[in-house]
Design a protein around this nucleic acid. Structure first.
Lengths: 235, 235
DNA sequence: AATCGATTGAAACAGTTGTTTGATTTCCGC
DNA sequence: GCGGAAATCAAACAACTGTTTCAATCGATT
């Protein structure tokens, strides 16, 4: 009656035959493409090549299938794109460039972003139960790595709260291209998109922007006369 | 048979009675809250206090109702939050702070962001037909205003493509809090959220960050050299 | 080969969806 | 008040949804 529990260490060739992971994979793609409501278990089962009843047999209902498919997607993604690691002694600025490039590669991919990322993005934008685990296992480690790079970059002179704000500023810039890429493409001339808004140039820009802001690189511009030191908010 | 066309200049007291705008308003809130698929015309009609058939009578079908409700939402929003305007001679840095603060107010609102914004955000994240008009009428004017402020700030030394990249960097930082606010709240300690991640402090940070990057303000940190100036960090 | 539980399969179920129908009421110029 | 268009209403429709049922099949252990 109850489905047999499969070992987590089953090898890949098994996975392809295992209807459980076939369903998870098909479900992830459908959910990523159409969203939770618009995706139907019928389409998922057809894509997975299993019977309609298999979803309820293995996962109980659609909602639990969704949660499991998000989990499965981010576990797969962690295996695909490991955390970058640098030899000790690598300059912090170089680490930052590597980190931003890696983040953009993850988010945008070389070509079409993989469905795993699009599914995770849906979860970030409209969180459900599956979100917390996603944040703790996938997002937070990356975020903390960025914070540590920034700490090194600032020579330990900035408090944690400020480091986190700067980290969010950097993540936000990457995030915009992933979540609102279509709108960006409407705002910027088409030829400029191809030239300046692909992963590598974006990474260069975001890094230069951050380094300059932290005083660890040349400012992007040299306004003619020393601009009046922009008195802080006068509220 | 065909519904009568109402003048666009009908006054507000009329609007409240006009079933057309009652439906548009109810639909916008439902779509913003639940998304296109999950929102039902039955719930919309109940909320609007009209008969089920009214949607098809006035708008034809659900999809056209959605498009019209997005249009209606951003027209309303434009009326609510006019473009900021400064007397000539206002320092560019001050304009930037005002712009960022205004953008965050629009996106986050003082309390719960209005449904109009949440609906527009859905359209940005998962564009449909209604998106193009939204971009041209609502987003692009704001974007171009930011670009012009940045141009002034850089003293005309930066090319348009670079200005647009910086503008996107700034918008991205604001955008993160609106679109991924829940995840931000999971990444940052709760007390820090209340202290440092509300509209005003964010606006201060984003502005300082950008000014420093452009060389028009003090860097956030002084790595290697003397300790951080920590001048008026937060109050 | 027989057995028994795990798995698959086709079909049906009950509920909800967007949409349509056709009668009824309301409104307004005459 | 009358006539006819505009607007409203309750009811039904057909299609699709997630879920359940239960018999058929498979696969390993005896």
């Amino acid at each position: 009656m109850a489905p047999q529990i499969r070992s987590n260490t089953a090898n890949i060739s098994d996975d392809i035959r295992d209807p459980r992971v076939r369903i998870l994979s098909a479900a992830g793609q459908e959910f990523a493409e159409r969203g939770y409501e618009a995706a139907t278990v019928r389409d998922i089962c057809t894509a997975a090549g299993v019977n309609l009843a298999a979803v309820n047999y293995y996962f109980g209902d659609k909602q639990r299938l969704y949660i499991e498919s998000v989990k499965h997607a981010h576990e797969e993604r962690i295996r695909q794109v490991p955390q970058p690691d640098w030899p000790s002694g690598t300059p912090a600025a170089e680490k930052l460039l590597g980190f931003v490039g890696n983040t953009l590669d993850r988010m945008l991919g070389t070509g079409q972003p993989p469905w795993q990322v699009r599914l995770m993005m849906r979860e970030v934008l409209h969180p459900t139960e599956a979100c917390r685990e996603l944040v703790e296992d996938y997002i937070r480690p990356h975020f903390e790595l960025l914070v540590s790079i920034l700490d090194e970059l600032a020579g330990g002179t900035l408090p944690g709260s400020e480091l986190r704000r700067v980290a969010l500023s950097i993540m936000g810039q990457c995030f915009l291209y992933r979540a609102a890429g279509d709108v960006v493409a409407m705002l910027v001339p088409a030829d400029e998109i191809e030239a300046c808004h692909t992963p590598r140039p974006i990474a260069d820009h975001v890094t230069r922007f951050a380094l300059a802001a932290l005083g660890a690189g040349e400012p992007l511009a040299r306004p003619g006369r020393r601009a009046a030191p922009a008195k802080e908010s006068h509220r």
